[in-house]
Computed example of a mutant assay.
Amino acid sequence: MTRVVIVSARVGAGHDGAACELARRFRERGMRVDRLDFLDLLPGRLGRILCGFYQRQLTVAPRSWDWLLALLGTRVIAGLARRFARLATPGLGEVIDRDVVLTVSTYPMATHTLAHLKAIGGLAAPLAVYLTDPSVHRLCISPLAQLTVAPNEIAADQAQRWGARRTVVARPLVAPEFRPPRSWAERLRARAMFGLPEGQRLALVVSGSWGVGHVESIAADVAASGQAVPVVVCGRNERLRERLTAAGFRFVLGWVESMPELMRACDVVVQNAGGLSTSEALATGLPVLTYRCLPGHGRANAAVLDAEGTVPWVRRRADLEPALTRALAAGNTEPARPAPVAEVAS
């Protein structure tokens, strides 16, 4: 059986989400798929430490992510990061053998581990890189990858400037469950599922699987706009959930397994990072706004999504109310077409 290896990382949910959907589509084509986590390939507890540091950084000192990304954009520091990625090479080499016909990376550091394995002759299969963010950082690209899949034309241009070889543009990978409601009755059933009111406009506030950023301020500003009632998803951040509940917000959720139904229950999405949740919302036919976005990749993603006209970036509190008014008036959009697996597999 044809074997594909996909390497991701549990850093947030975006990289894993893309890997999961890509694996599903390959399996539908009769292929055997192995999904690996870059963090588990690192020696000892290094992967757990790295993941914990990143989460604490975004939670405690998010502005430092701007500085770190800037440093990682320099030639010297980027080179050191690539050397760090090589620490996962022995672990990866143990699971790569001759029956692998394609390797795919959905996480930048995994890209450089696979590229190093290819450079030293330990990987004969082609390497494809799937870019999960609308914007492209220097570390996302390796010239040793035979294919780089970008989510938009701006990202494709950025990737080529960083040295990507063959680059194609495909819609973001989103599970088929993320689709518009087929009827108003289906939307009402979704609202009943989560105990949401039937006759009010609902703004789904999302901030990634870790619930990071100025989430409380976003929810308060949405409520103060008078345009929609905030429905806040806190992900795995239980402290955030407790604070919002104590502050009197009525609709506060933790980790949500049935996100497609929740999105079909709502009228607009307000997000702060431009990652997987944004793609899922657009596939569900919801208008999306970026507001109080995260530093670093959050701002970079917001700029690209705004420039291509997909998701407006609301930069000031005073602009939120008219932006919500426009988004709600626009209503649902056409769901995005799925990324063609053939482009990745070829």
Rank of each mutant, 00 (worst) to 15 (best):
S64P: 00
H112W: 15
H112I: 09
A70T: 10
T74Y: 07
R56S: 08
L46M: 12
H112R: 09
A85C: 12
T106S: 14
Y107F: 15
T74G: 15
L68S: 10
T113E: 14
H112V: 09
D99M: 10
L80W: 06
L72D: 05
R56K: 06
P62E: 07
T111L: 09
R48V: 03
F84H: 06
G52K: 06
P108C: 15
G79F: 09
R48M: 00
A70V: 02
R82T: 05
Q55G: 10
L50C: 05
L71C: 05
W65K: 00
L80K: 01
R75D: 10
T113A: 15
I49S: 13
T111G: 09
A88Y: 03
P90G: 12
T113G: 13
P108T: 12
L72Y: 05
I77Y: 07
P108R: 14
M109I: 12
I49Q: 13
T89A: 15
T111K: 05
V104C: 12
A61N: 10
Q55N: 11
L69T: 06
L58V: 03
R75C: 01
S64C: 08
G47H: 04
I77D: 01
A110W: 03
G93I: 04
L72F: 08
G79I: 05
F84G: 10
G91H: 03
F53I: 00
H112F: 11
M109G: 08
S64W: 12
R75P: 02
L46G: 04
Y54A: 03
T113F: 13
R98D: 15
Y107K: 08
L68N: 06
F53R: 00
V101C: 14
A110S: 10
G47R: 04
D66N: 15
G52T: 04
R98K: 13
R82K: 14
